[in-house]
Amino acid sequence: MGIDIGGTGIKGGIVDLGTGELVTDRFRLDTPQPATPDAVAETVAKVAANFDYTGPVGVDFPGVVMDGVVQTAANVDKAWIGTSLLETVGPKLPGPSFFLNDADAAGLAEVRYGVGAGHRGLVVMVTFGTGVGIALIHDGKLVPNAELGHIEIDGHDAETKAAASAREREELSWEKWAKRASKYLRTLEQLIWPELFILGGGISKRPEKWVPHLKCRTPLKVAELINNAGIVGSALAAFEAAQVGAVVPGAGSPR
């Protein structure tokens, strides 16, 4: 099972890891406001309880996650910083649990089942949404928690100018916003030299509006899994972690 914690919704499903497809309907509940740790944990529990399932559960979160502990909360309640997902959410799940960054989950899904499948070298997933999320995958291996959405460009945190939310906030045309996104992508190119950019986030539902305006040297592909990427990547991460004993027992599994 994979569960995706977002700023507006928390959704989950059971995944066929052979195909990367959901074998159940996706189930979604609104993210509680305020999105405090206890309130979010209860909502995650309700999402998980919607399925007749026991086994490994992967959960992604919009922030840096190290050893199950949230380290950053750029676009969620600051009470999350220093909170253990393992202790707050893990006991409410029906099996061993594993937690990771949301962009990392989406990137894993795309390189295994989506447009990044079969690509060697460095693949960079860029999600344009409320913020800018980054996943680095080299030869299929994830380099976790790459917070490159916050690099400084022209004296600004990059995501304050290049995120999809900035286009809406400043009422920019698609072309004007794409110039900012292009500058951001070119800055990444100078730092890490990727072999492929995968472009995701909610904005990727309308690629014809902005992708043709992007200018960078790296090949571009639009993400395929869209709304299911976090669920699929989280489930995959949990399964693989379980194989090496890196998941933590939850309420539904022996301790």
Rank of each mutant, 00 (worst) to 15 (best):
I3A: 09
D4S: 01
I5T: 12
G9R: 12
I14R: 09
V15D: 00
E21M: 12
E21P: 06
T24N: 10
D25Q: 14
R26L: 11
R28M: 15
T31P: 09
T31D: 13
T31I: 08
P34K: 06
P37H: 05
D38K: 10
V40C: 04
A41G: 12
E42I: 01
T43Y: 08
A45M: 11
K46V: 02
V47T: 06
A48Q: 07
A49C: 05
A49Y: 09
N50R: 15
F51M: 06
D52E: 13
Y53Q: 05
Y53I: 03
D60E: 12
F61R: 10
G68E: 07
T72N: 06
T72K: 06
V76A: 07
D77L: 12
I81T: 12
I81N: 05
G82W: 02
L85D: 07
L85M: 10
L85E: 08
E87M: 05
V89F: 00
K92R: 15
P94T: 08
P94R: 12
P96N: 13
S97D: 12
A105E: 02
A105H: 04
A106Q: 13
V111T: 15
V115R: 05
R120A: 14
M125A: 02
F128I: 09
G129S: 13
G129T: 11
V132P: 03
G133I: 01
G133S: 05
G133K: 00
I137E: 00
I137N: 01
V143G: 01
N145I: 07
N145H: 04
A146I: 07
E147I: 10
G149I: 04
G149W: 02
I151S: 02
I153S: 10
D154L: 05
G155Q: 13
G155K: 13
A158V: 08
E159C: 14
T160W: 01
A163L: 12
E168N: 11
E171I: 08
S173A: 09
S173E: 02
S173T: 15
W174H: 14
E175W: 08
W177H: 10
K179C: 14
K179S: 15
R180N: 07
A181G: 13
K183H: 14
Y184W: 14
L185F: 02
L188G: 07
E189V: 05
Q190T: 15
L191F: 15
L191P: 12
W193Q: 15
P194E: 10
P194K: 08
L196N: 03
L196V: 05
L199V: 09
L199C: 10
G200Q: 06
G201D: 08
I203W: 01
K205V: 13
W210F: 14
W210K: 01
V211Y: 01
K215S: 14
L220I: 10
V222Q: 04
A229V: 06
V232A: 00
G233R: 00
S234P: 10
S234N: 09
A235S: 14
L236C: 00
A238C: 02
E240F: 01
A241Y: 05
A242P: 06
A242E: 15
Q243L: 11
G245I: 13
A246V: 01
V247C: 13
P249F: 04
P249R: 06
S253F: 08
R255C: 08
R255M: 09
R255S: 14
